[in-house]
């Protein structure tokens, strides 16, 4: 049982505030992904959970035990590093068994556990090799196997797949998700790749400028972004925004069209995902600028009300640059944001 609780954690590097008052609870056996652009503080947060970095203020609890004053080795965690950190002077076997040897486990127990995780990660034929004789993907497997061999309560991963090529990354993604689900450990996974985050996570914490903007399931984060940042960060292409003016009684005027929206006096922004629109008789008037056929879809970059707007249409749609389209947004997929607070308005 290892629930992770992060209570009011803040981190300053000199004058630079890397993390602002983070509160987050990661439940036992949950796969939590910390997602954000570089410099958002996601790695710093992971390193604070790990114990490689100390929080300026706040507490870290793992499995009901306060650990922020403990060194990494006493926290019941294992970490997988971005550059694998496979020890070059040891064989793969000794790398995987390193932590077990440090625990002074008997030889046959070490062998048993190393062989088990090596089989799990499909590297049993590499056990006698050295790190220099392995490919990047193989090193990554060794690094994961080494962490799993510890049978930790919590496994922490810092962009473990970012150094692999695209095909291998996709393969490892699925494999890693399967292995971790079986291992019954709580996982915290740092990445800047939203596809990785969406496909692996039970829950995603989207981070921006040292704060957690939203922590929710992948679908929730995608469908109901809590803030403009999330809407613009998640999804490829991201959400479209248009200025809106209230006409009273929850009616809004957007690019010459009237939409139902929240009943408020504030100025709001209208938002819609590119794939949540279809050509129709009435709707937003768009002038197509660039057409990009993507196989399954057609990505159309167009001009709506003088601003850039993207639509993902069925690839059978006949449209060419300069065409005038009328795009009808799916009413239940329309979202509203307050430009002042940048937060979503229901």
């Amino acid at each position: 049982m290892a629930e992770i609780q992060i209570k009011n954690v803040a981190k300053k590097f000199g004058e630079y505030q890397a993390l602002h008052d983070i509160n987050l609870t990661i439940s036992d056996r949950e796969f939590m992904v910390l997602l954000g652009a570089s410099g958002c503080g996601k790695t710093t947060l992971l390193r604070i959970i790990c114990g490689l970095e100390t929080a300026t203020t706040g507490e870290v609890w793992i499995g009901g035990r306060r650990v922020d004053h403990l060194p990494p080795k006493d926290r019941g965690i294992a970490m997988v590093f971005q550059n694998y950190a496979v020890f070059p002077h040891l064989t793969v076997f000794e790398n995987i068994g390193f932590g077990l040897r440090m625990q002074k486990l008997p030889n046959d127990e070490v062998t048993r556990r190393v062989e088990r995780v090596a089989e799990l990660m499909h590297i049993e034929m590499l056990l006698k090799r050295y790190s220099g004789e392995l490919s990047g993907g193989q090193r990554q497997r060794v690094a994961v196997a080494r962490a799993l061999a510890m049978e930790p309560d919590v496994i922490l991963m810092d962009e473990p797949l970012s150094n692999l090529d695209a095909l291998l990354r996709m393969e490892m993604r699925a494999e890693l998700k399967g292995v971790l689900a079986e291992s019954n450990t709580t996982a915290v996974y740092v990445t800047h790749d939203q596809v990785e985050a969406m496909s692996m996570a039970d829950r995603i914490s989207v981070m921006h400028k040292g704060k957690i903007v939203q922590a929710a399931s992948p679908i929730e984060v995608y469908r109901n972004p809590a803030a403009e940042f999330v809407a613009g960060f998640i999804g490829n292409p991201p959400m479209n925004f248009l200025p809106a003016t209230a006409t009273g009684n929850g009616q809004w005027r957007v690019a010459g069209q009237t939409f139902d929206g929240p009943d408020t006096e504030k100025t709001l922004k209208f938002a819609i995902r590119p794939e949540d629109m279809a050509p129709a008789d009435t709707g937003l008037v768009a002038i197509a600028k660039v057409i990009e056929p993507l196989g399954a879809h057609l990505l159309v970059t167009c001009d709506v009300d003088g601003g850039m707007f993207r639509a993902v249409l069925d690839s059978d749609t006949t449209v060419k640059a300069g065409d005038r389209l009328t795009l009808a947004p799916q009413p239940d997929r329309v979202r509203w944001f307050d430009p002042e607070t940048t937060l979503a308005v229901a």
Partner: peptide, 27 residues
């Protein structure tokens, strides 16, 4: 010697000293 090697050793049960003698020194 990458800092990550030492950090990895710390997470695998080493103190600063044992990480030094078991990982950094041999290298």
């Amino acid at each position: 010697i990458p800092m990550e090697l030492e950090e990895a050793a710390w997470t695998l049960g080493c103190t600063r000293l044992t990480a030094f003698t078991k990982v950094v020194l041999p290298l």
